[in-house]
Amino acid sequence: QPPPESDSLEFHNAISYVNKIKTRFLDRPEIYRSFLEILHTYQKDQLNPKGRPFRGMSEEEVFTEVASLFHGQEDLLSEFGQFLPEA
């Protein structure tokens, strides 16, 4: 069982990352909104009951979508890769 500190570290990292994206795309809020939509779609799929024939968005698809959204912002993309579970 992992120690609770890891949970709060992950939470803190997630907050910093969301802040960084918000700041980076202050002039282009539609990019930030699309990023949130991708995350929500992914999360919705994760909540589907197991054993459903259609699994929805895979980790790989999430990464591909975010990569095209963050095109040219390699630091944001590589940081995103650190959150994504291995596909």
């Binding site: 992950e10 939470f11 650190q82």
Partner: peptide, 26 residues
């Protein structure tokens, strides 16, 4: 200071649960 909307907060939630899942599977 963090000025987060509910949308932001749920993004933080999804990202941190992704990271937890990643840690659990590694």
């Amino acid at each position: 200071s963090y000025d987060f909307t509910p949308m932001d907060s749920s993004a933080v939630y999804v990202l941190s649960s992704m990271a937890r899942q990643r840690r659990a599977s590694s």
